[in-house]
Each structure stands twice: as C-alpha cells, then as structure tokens.
C-alpha cells in the first residue's frame, strides 16, 4: 500500500468515527423526546406499547389546558408586538446616541438574561403585586415576558443597523429631502428586516417557553403552556404530561421551522447586499 492510500484510509476511518460519535450524541438527545412522545400515545405507560396506542390523553389535555395554550399564543404575539414597538425605536435611539450613557445602556441590556427569572418576577411582585386587577390579569405576565425578551429584539436590530450603516443611509435620504418619519419608513425599516426577523424569532420562542418568571407571576386563571406542563407533570398521570409535551411540540415546531426558514432567506439576501 502506498503512503497516500494509507493516509486516505486513515482519513476515512476518522470520518466513520466522527459520524458514529455524532449519531450517538443525537440519539442521546432524541431518545428522551421520543419516549416522552410515545408515552403520551400509549394506553398505559407502565405496561408498555403492548397496551395499545390511543389519542385519549391528547384529548384530555386539550380539554383541560386548551385555555393555557391559547393564552401562551396570545401572550407570545402580544409580547412580540410590544418588543417590536419598543425595541426597534430603542435600537435606533441607541445607534444615534453618541452619549456616554448609551454604551452603558447597551451593557445593561444583557442584565435580564443574567438575572434569574425568579428574581425578576419577585421584583415585579414586590413593586406591582399590590395592584389587584393588574396582578391577576395576563398583562402582569406580559410585563415579565417583555422585560425578559426585549434585549433579544434590540440586540440583533442594533447589530444590523450598525452593519449597514443606517446613519449614513439616513443622511443620504435627508439630503434628498426626506423628513425623519419618511426616511425611517422608507430607508431604515426596510433595510433592517433581517435583524427584526431574527429578533422576532427569539422573542416568540423565548416567550412561549418561558417558565421561571411566568411560574412566579401566574394565577390559576393565567396559566401558560410551560406552567401547565409543570402542573400536569406534578399532578396528573405520566401519560397526560407526555401528551402535553406532544401538543407543545406539535404547536411550536412548524412555527419555528417557518420562522427559521424566513430568517435564512432574509439573511442570505442581506449578506448578498452587503458584499
């Protein structure tokens, strides 16, 4: 055998090792999900698959928790709305501000991510828990979610604005006669879509899956998907909890795939433009 072919064989052997290792890791992560999903579909988990498959648990979960599911969707969309309305102008403001405090604010934006959700929730309870109506409405949870997700909207939008040099574009637009609102709508927004989309994806997923803050802030009437999940795990049959997971996955996966795909298309477009 020549040295070249030895090397080639060696390289191929290496490849198989890597493949096996990767598959093993994937298996390690996927098996629990599969087990959980099948548990939600079997008649009796302790007996096993031989007890037969059923959709009974799914129906039961839906009957019990439909409200939480709707609330979660509603909450995520509202959260997205609020972070869009607050986040884009905030990013824009940070970009334009030359002041020293602007960089400080940029650093502070990471704070809610580092502070445990429980602490944020506790602070909210201490500050606003006294307002009964507010405390028991879903708006209270919304505030928590917005606090938590806002940085994830601001950061990508700010990054895109910096990378395409929005300030210069605006100066060009203004020299051509565009007033501030006109140039924001015709130049700033359309050129930031990739960042906005990336931010939106983060906000939606974080809001739908958020547990810590929500668990502290929720009332029996304002239960979101993850809180309901914890609830069902704690108090119901294992099959019900698993069926719940299944529903959760069915809801969130298609949605994630669509948004991810959109994001990729947009970034490809944007990077083609920049180069």
């Amino acid at each position: 055998m020549t040295t070249a072919s030895v090397r080639r064989n060696g390289r191929r052997g290496m490849f198989y090792w890597q493949l096996a290792f990767t598959l093993l890791i994937c298996l390690f992560m996927i098996v629990p999900v599969v087990m959980s999903v099948t548990a939600g579909l079997t008649e009796n988990y302790f007996v096993g698959l031989s007890s037969g498959l059923t959709t009974r648990w799914l129906v039961e979960v839906w009957n019990l928790y439909a409200q939480s599911i709707w609330l979660s969707i509603y909450l995520a969309l509202s959260c997205l709305g609020v972070t869009l309305v607050l986040g884009i102008p905030a990013a824009y403001g940070l970009l334009k501000s030359q002041k020293r405090w602007a960089s400080l604010v940029e650093e502070l934006l990471l704070m809610p991510v580092a502070v445990p959700g429980l602490a944020t929730a506790l602070a909210l309870l201490l500050a606003y828990g006294g307002f009964r109506g507010f405390r028991s409405s879903w708006l209270f949870i919304l505030v928590g979610h917005v606090l938590f997700t806002l940085p994830f909207m601001i950061r990508p939008v700010l990054a895109v604005m910096q990378s395409i040099n929005v300030v210069k574009l605006e100066e060009a637009a203004s020299s051509l006669g565009a007033r501030p609102v006109q140039r924001f709508l015709s130049v700033v927004l359309p050129n930031c879509t990739s960042g906005i989309l990336a931010g939106a994806l983060m906000v939606l997923t974080l809001s739908v899956g958020e547990f810590n803050i929500t668990w502290m802030l929720h009332t029996p009437l304002t239960k979101t998907l993850p809180v309901g999940l914890a609830d069902s795990y704690a108090s119901m049959r294992l099959e019900v909890g698993s069926a719940y997971t299944l529903i959760f996955l069915m809801m969130i996966l298609p949605f994630l795939i669509v948004v991810q795909w959109l994001g990729q298309v947009m970034t490809r477009k944007a990077s083609a433009r920049v180069s």
């Binding site: 210069k168 574009l169 100066e171 060009a172 203004s174 007033r179 130049v187 944007a270």
Partner: peptide, 20 residues
C-alpha cells in the same frame, strides 16, 4: 433649516446607496 429643506445634493465616500 434642517438638511431636508436645504435642497443640497450629497455624494459620499461610501456611496450610501439604499440597499433595498
């Protein structure tokens, strides 16, 4: 007067064309 009312034409080093 703000720039948009001054009727000036500007050409920048980095073009500043609208990518969209």
């Amino acid at each position: 007067l703000p720039i948009e009312k001054r009727d000036v034409g500007m050409v920048f080093q980095n073009y500043a064309l609208f990518p969209n």
